[in-house]
């Protein structure tokens, strides 16, 4: 009898430590949460391309969500996917995927999004060397610039609708190529989400400068980043519950303060001039 009780207690303890009711039986691998990120994963979202360390905003968010869902760090597995890998039809190789996916209604037709885990604006970066360092930044000033942006971001369509620049926008595969084009003066200015812009100008470029961020009431701005899950995944509700619990208890704010530089000092672009 005593032995049965101990076994029972052990089973209860083990299940409490590894999984909660919501996700049990619905994860890719039993008792393990498989999380996907980009390849490579960029600063400041994942530090040193090592999400296993939990360093970086998205890595920390991922572990926090896993923890709330009942998976300790030992029960989290990481995989890498491209953007295309995340949206291709068929079985996914992850339970959820986070690599700054903006939540868009068109995308939501083929994949599930969690509630947003981060909201940001788009910022305009120039080099102080190319003479395009305008202060204050205005809409009419923006129209005259030749822009570069990442093709995977919604920046191209955003520029077209909100700014309508005169020169055609050049698009690149990743942050590194976009920055290279700016440094080679092939474009006057590039668009990043604010945390990436803060990182690029603060760490990667010597002469980079953020001239402004777009105001939050312009269409498609701000960007809401959401976790990507398979369409109609039973886990979406579990992840949302974990996220709202983390937001309520202040964990998300703590993670944000720890890993993302404050964008409070960045001026807002005047869209009326």
């Amino acid at each position: 009898m005593k032995r049965t009780l101990t076994t029972l207690a052990a089973i209860l303890l083990a299940s409490a430590a590894t999984a909660n009711e919501c996700s049990t039986g619905n994860t890719l691998t039993a008792d393990t949460l498989t999380i996907a990120t980009g390849n490579p994963a960029y600063y400041p979202w994942v530090i040193d391309d090592a999400p296993e360390s939990g360093n970086g905003f998205e890595a920390a968010v991922a572990y926090a969500i896993a923890g709330k869902m009942g998976y300790d760090n030992a029960h989290v597995a990481w995989v890498r996917t491209s953007f295309d890998g995340a949206i291709q039809p068929g079985a996914k190789n992850f339970d959820f995927n986070l690599q700054q996916f903006s939540i868009l209604p068109e995308r939501a037709e083929v994949i599930d999004f969690s509630a947003p885990y981060y909201t940001t604006t788009k910022a305009v970066v120039v080099t102080t060397a190319n003479g395009k360092d305008m202060t204050p930044a205005t809409l009419s000033g923006m129209k005259g610039l030749k822009f570069g942006a990442g093709a995977g971001l919604s920046a191209a369509t955003f520029l077209e609708s909100a700014v309508q620049p005169m020169a055609s926008t050049l698009l690149y595969d990743d942050v590194a190529n976009t920055t290279a084009a700016l440094q080679a003066n092939q474009v006057d200015a590039v668009i990043f989400d604010l945390p990436t812009a803060l990182f690029v100008t603060g760490v990667q470029m010597d002469n980079g400068k953020i001239i402004g961020q777009f105001p939050t009431d312009v269409n498609d701005s701000p960007d809401h980043f959401g976790l990507v899950l398979a369409k109609n995944s039973p886990l979406t509700a579990c992840v949302d519950a974990a996220l709202s619990a983390l937001q309520a208890d202040g964990t998300m704010a703590t993670i944000e303060d720890k890993w993302l530089a404050s964008g409070a000092g960045v001026p807002v672009i005047d869209m009326s001039k």
Binding site: L104, R107, V110, A156, S168, L171, N177
Partner: peptide
């Protein structure tokens, strides 16, 4: 390396529509 020709335009739409 930057120019938005057919393949890139398709890529932009792919990303926008996740399709």
């Amino acid at each position: 390396i930057g120019p938005v020709e057919l393949l890139r335009q398709a890529g932009v739409y792919k990303s926008l529509f996740a399709n």
